[in-house]
Computed example of a mutant assay.
Amino acid sequence: MLRKITTKLLLVLSLSLFSINFASAQEGHEAHPENHEATAHEEEKFDIGQMIMHHIADSHEWEFAHGLTLPLPVILYTKQYGLEVFSSKRFAEGNGVYNGYINNHEHIHRLNPQGGLDEEVHVWDLSITKNVASMLLSAVILIVLMSTVAKSFAKNRGKAPKGIQSFIEPIIFFIRDEVVIPNVGPKYEKYLPYLLTLFFFILVNNLLGLIPGGANLTGNITITLFLAVITFIITHINANKHYWLHLVKPEGVPVAMLPLMWVVEIAGVFMKPMSLTIRLFANITAGHIIILSLLGLIFIFKSFAVGGVVTLFTLFMNAIELLVAFLQAFIFTLLSSMYIGSAIEEHHEADHGH
């Protein structure tokens, strides 16, 4: 664990030092009068907001660092032209245009013969984007990791855990004993596989997002919404009659107040997945924006002093984000367990004043 944290901090430090060196090179470039106009042009082009959005948003190519980009498959389907597959490198070579398509801020449209957008052609974008590639990578990591732990557990049954098992097994037991069992109750075994998968999926993607050049998967509201919807569906498919009766006719509520309570209860039902969605999305995205904003200060001020201070703050923020990565995975799993537990418990103690 300590070695992983140290490695991550060194990566951030390397990125910061690279940024400082780049800024210094820009300052040295200013010393030559013949390059003054080009330098001024570069200063004009730098936009910290655009830089931040470029790094946290999804894209059709995976840029690990400036000049180091991995092209990804672009998969498009239209009713008129059928299925078309090509590399995102084609868009880069054609300034965003290739084979009658234009990539306009990561939204792909079909062009008409006049060069304008063809509104009659609806493009279904099924591409392997940066977030999709990161999600597939995290799935492979989880499959390999958990398969290794399972084999190690079977091999060392009744013995002290070894290797990666000694790190993962306590986390699994902690989530089971301290999160799932107390909140879901005696029927926890049915939901444990989902909740453990949920925790480790969020955790792994949170950590991958902290690596320089990593994708902001859990900072994508579509992903967090999908995870919340799965919890919502599992909760209400397995909900018992006590849960539904509580929504329709809460105990102790006068009949005249029932219409108002229906509105409150229905709003509460849909606010739960929304709270899961926004909490994870906002916390992960905010952390990335803060770190990128700090690094952007190096390019704005172009000073060794500022670079040194920014490096220290970035290291501190990255350590905080490392904690947040675990905390947000824990909170999402905890709340999901509570929502499922409240829907399947046999008696609502709160209705009886306990």
Rank of each mutant, 00 (worst) to 15 (best):
K159I: 03
N206V: 00
Y188M: 10
N220I: 10
G209C: 01
F153V: 12
T148F: 10
G219C: 08
G219H: 08
Q165T: 15
G158N: 10
K151D: 01
L145V: 05
I211D: 01
A160W: 11
L208Y: 04
P170D: 06
F174M: 15
A150V: 15
L192N: 02
E169I: 03
L208A: 00
L142I: 03
D177Y: 05
S147Y: 13
L208R: 07
N206S: 10
I223P: 09
A215H: 01
L225P: 00
F226M: 15
N156Y: 06
L208Q: 01
I221W: 14
L225W: 00
L192H: 04
K187T: 11
N216V: 06
T148H: 10
F173N: 12
G209K: 02
G213P: 01
V180H: 14
M146W: 04
F199G: 09
P186S: 14
L198F: 08
F201C: 08
L208W: 02
V149D: 07
I211M: 00
F173I: 09
R176Y: 08
L195G: 14
F200R: 06
I221T: 15
T224R: 15
I221K: 13
M146I: 04
L142W: 04
N183T: 13
D177C: 07
A215I: 01
N216C: 04
L195R: 12
L227V: 05
L207Y: 07
F201R: 10
A154C: 05
S147K: 13
I143S: 06
K159S: 06
G185R: 14
P212W: 00
R157H: 12
G213M: 04
L145S: 06
F153N: 10
